[in-house]
């Protein structure tokens, strides 16, 4: 299956803004995060097709997955 993966803010550094990714059926968000060399602790927001998603969310063909880093300053 193919998904569109969008990275935001510092996740783009040394990576990309948007890329099409070919994934095995049944891949979840966590596997994509780890494949990017990111840790779960660095993840702020998981957005799946415009809505709040989970690390456990299973991906489907045609999904758009967006990952944002944790932001907490004031």
């Amino acid at each position: 299956m193919q998904i569109t993966l969008k990275l935001f803010a510092t996740f783009r550094n040394g990576r990309f803004k948007v890329a099409e990714q070919e994934l095995a059926e049944g891949t979840d968000v966590r596997q994509v995060v780890l494949s990017l060399g990111l840790t779960e602790e660095e993840i702020g927001i998981v957005m799946l097709n415009g809505r709040h998603g989970e690390l456990d969310s299973k991906l489907s063909h045609g999904d758009t997955l967006s990952l944002f880093p944790l932001v907490g300053g004031g």
């Binding site: 779960e40 702020g44 927001i45 998981v46 880093p69 944790l70 907490g72």
Partner: peptide, 19 residues
């Protein structure tokens, strides 16, 4: 709570980037 549901400990990217 949902925005920070993946949070375990510590700060976010502000720790490295400042403001």
């Amino acid at each position: 709570q949902q925005i920070y549901r993946h949070w375990v400990q510590g700060k976010g990217i502000e720790q490295q980037l400042g403001n």
